[in-house]
Design a protein around this nucleic acid. Structure first.
Length: 493
RNA sequence: GCCCCCAUCGUCUAGUCUGGUUAGGACACAGGCCUUUCAAGCCUGGUACAUGGGUUCAAAUCCCGUUGGGGGCACCA
């Protein structure tokens, strides 16, 4: 069998990480089976349509490297792949069901529906349509008046479908509503459109969140009404937020685009998502998998059934792992947009800025959790730093006078260096510390505060080199003034 | 309320199908080493089979109940 799977988002919002995890599963499966991964846009809800959602969906998939074989921008033999361009198909199919007696027209008003639902809820029953129009003679509701088309769900019996992971799942038909297939605006509902499209697009496997399980029997009935064979169903567990609820808009940064902006690498995100609800099993202890390894090893049988809580801790760790094993040139390329977005460097990058960036990359590589972390880590190189408070310039167990002496000595040392590079700084600085009767850490600490404006920074000598001789000396001078001012103020008091 | 699904460390999970393990790994956490800060890296440690009944020589594993969690019940997808 040719494997054909699809991702069928609705352009009512941006793709969030829970859905994307399921997309990853589909994509891996398609690639492994040399099948097709189809992107289909389910824009049948006119009211909730979000203008740029389609673009963001495409961008997000592209950024993640989850390429589609058929769909918007790609074409294919089963198009169009946007449901709003397939309205005649759905209308025709709905009419077919009406003429076969499997569906009927209903002109009940919204108010009536609300009323009966409320009444049923009050009785403690599942709210559903009472079937008023179902029992009317054919033609009682005119084709020309405003109406919907509903499926005539059998009143008795049980509908069963097979799920690859859970086996057979059954529900009593009496519990199923006479679902609407075609809305009064001529658009299909999800249930009709998805069945028609999955069938016409020859989708072989439907892999999606298990929140769809309860509505699957409805769709089975539609397949049966048409006399079609349903696809193979694989319901995968949902991704939950830290609060244990289905991941959604209320969980903060959950859209793919936000992960990109936050500085996560697409390859790390894909790796992480693949392992959220799936594992290679068989005692495998590897955690970092290349895209090729994931494609080769993914298997449906090892998908876990319990929902998974999305936690940033492991993603952060994994992102760091990817950053650390990256080549320096590549990391540089990837970091540049973050420096630019923060306004620390020019766009495009000036030629004279590059050497500074090249100094910084190896210094930050093992200190980054996300790419964006580079901003806070290196901002002192690109912008002026605030005048440090005197406490920051006086090391532990040191006097202010000692600090001043040290700062002055460092000024002389760095000012006189022939090569302004870490290798030329380290030994003299260590000797200097010894001469001053200080531990290296004491000396380096106050110099760090003076030059970077931070108590915590990338390695000191590389940082000094990146700041440059002139600005380093200027910052040391500022530190000198702070110390002198403090000494004089103390004397005066 | 009704229906459906699920249940191993705090989190992601291996092990469950085909009963016999000191219940393994990763993240996080704690301690240590390294060290110019912070990281990274290395070492060590604690923490889990929801619960009650079966079946069996033997149950995380098979069966039933309970509890807990999640999801679904639209002219939304």
């Amino acid at each position: 069998m040719t494997v054909r799977v699809r991702f069928a988002p609705s352009p009512t919002g941006y793709p969030h990480i829970g859905n994307v995890r399921t997309v990853v599963f589909n994509w891996l499966f398609a690639r492994q089976q040399h099948g097709a991964f189809v992107l289909r846009i389910e824009d049948t809800d006119q009211e909730r349509f979000v203008r740029d959602a389609l673009r963001v969906i495409e961008d997000s998939l592209q950024w993640l490297g989850l390429d589609w074989d058929e769909g918007p921008g790609k074409g294919g033999n089963c198009g169009p792949y946007v449901q709003s361009q397939r309205l005649q198909i759905y209308q025709q199919k709905a009419e077919e069901l009406v003429s076969m007696g499997k569906a009927y027209r209903c002109n009940c008003s919204q108010e009536r529906l609300d009323t009966i639902r409320e009444a049923m809820r009050a009785e403690g029953k599942t709210p559903m349509y009472d079937g008023l129009c179902r029992d009317k003679p054919a033609g009682a509701v005119s084709k020309d008046e405003s109406h919907v088309i509903r499926l005539k769900v059998p009143r008795e019996g049980i509908t069963t479908f097979h799920d690859v992971l859970r086996g057979d799942i059954s529900i009593e038909n009496a519990l199923l509503d006479d679902q609407i297939l075609l809305k009064s605006d001529g658009f299909p509902t999800y249930h009709l459109a998805v069945v028609v499209d999955d069938h016409m697009m020859q989708i072989s496997h439907v892999m999606r969140g298990d929140d769809w399980i309860p509505s699957t029997p409805k769709r089975i009935l539609i397949y049966q009404a048409f006399g079609w064979t349903p696809p193979i169903f694989i319901h995968v567990p949902l991704v939950l937020g830290a609060d244990g609820k289905k991941l959604g808009k209320r969980h903060g940064a959950t859209s793919v685009d936000e992960f990109r902006r936050a500085g996560y690498l697409p390859e790390a995100l894909v790796n992480f998502l693949a392992l959220l609800g799936w594992s290679p099993g068989e005692g495998e202890q590897q955690e970092i998998f290349s895209r090729e390894e994931l494609i080769a090893r993914f298997d449906i049988a090892h998908i876990n059934l319990a929902p998974a809580v999305f936690s940033y801790d492991k993603l952060d760790w994994m992102n760091g792992q990817y950053i650390r094993k990256m080549g320096e040139e590549e990391l540089l390329e990837r970091l540049i947009p973050y420096w630019q977005d923060a306004g620390l460097i020019e766009t495009p990058v000036a030629t004279e800025t590059l050497p500074t960036l090249r100094i910084l990359v190896p210094l930050v590589q093992e200190r980054l959790t996300t790419l964006r972390d580079v901003v806070a880590l290196t901002d002192f190189v690109f912008q002026e730093v605030a005048e440090p408070p005197v406490e920051a310039l006086v090391g532990k167990a040191m006097t202010v006078e000692q600090s001043l002496e040290a700062i002055l000595a460092v000024q002389r040392l760095l000012g006189g260096l022939v090569q302004f590079a870490p290798d030329s700084m380290e030994e003299p600085m260590r000797s200097l510390a010894k001469e001053l009767g200080l531990k290296p850490g004491q000396l380096f600490g106050i110099v760090r505060n003076a030059v970077t404006g931070k108590a915590v920074s990338p390695p000191l000598f590389g940082s000094i080199q990146a700041v440059g001789r002139e600005r380093t000396l200027k910052r040391l001078e500022t530190a000198e003034h702070v110390l002198v001012a403090h000494i004089e103020a103390t004397k005066a008091a």
